[in-house]
């Protein structure tokens, strides 16, 4: 990747991005599929080292970890997509991101790349399945492959178990 372009991309403010600039994404994989989040939301990437389970929460809330003295919840993205719990090992990765004021961690299989995508190449998610349109805010193409852009606030929403 062009270094100058990368630096330039970092300095773009959201307004400039919206008006036809580029945006940078961190790409990661869950199984074979690649997803991405905006690089500006990423705070830290760390290896999985276990989490304390949180009672009375949905399955995809893997628990909480200690991030330098603050407690940060970890979401299992595979489980969030309804594909079962990740069998997490040391080789799995937690991406710590900020969602509004809060910091959350996403458990994924591996971080693969940093992508620079022109703003006007973000495709809408085709209608048809609520989960997809809810959890993805767009689709981009990288290396002839589809990359789903994760909608973080949607991932974090609805974490409590329904008390019947």
């Amino acid at each position: 990747m062009d270094v100058a372009e990368q630096a330039f991309g970092n300095e773009l403010d959201p307004g400039a991005q919206a008006s036809g600039g580029t945006m940078q994404l961190i790409a990661f994989s869950i199984g074979e599929q690649v997803y991405a989040v905006e690089i500006t939301t990423v705070r830290e990437i760390r290896a999985w080292s276990g989490a304390t389970p949180l009672p009375r929460t949905r399955e995809f809330v893997r628990g909480v970890i200690n991030l330098r003295g603050t407690i940060v919840p970890i979401f299992d993205l595979r489980a969030r997509f309804g594909a079962g719990l990740t069998d997490a090992t040391k080789n799995h990765v937690v991406i710590v991101m900020s969602v509004g004021e809060k910091w959350v961690g996403m458990l994924v299989d591996a971080v693969s790349d940093i992508l620079t995508i022109p703003q006007n190449e973000i495709h809408a998610v085709p209608e048809g399945e609520t989960m997809d349109t809810e959890l993805l805010k767009g689709i981009v193409t990288h290396g002839e492959k589809m990359v789903g852009m994760i909608d973080l606030p949607a991932i974090v929403a609805g974490v409590k178990t329904d008390v019947s």
């Binding site: 949180l54 009672p55 009375r56 929460t57 909480v64 603050t70 407690i71 940060v72 919840p73 809060k102 910091w103 959350v104 974490v159 409590k160």
Partner: peptide
């Protein structure tokens, strides 16, 4: 701070 209240915790 980063999550939400859980009953009993």
């Amino acid at each position: 701070e980063n999550f939400q209240r859980i009953d009993g915790i």
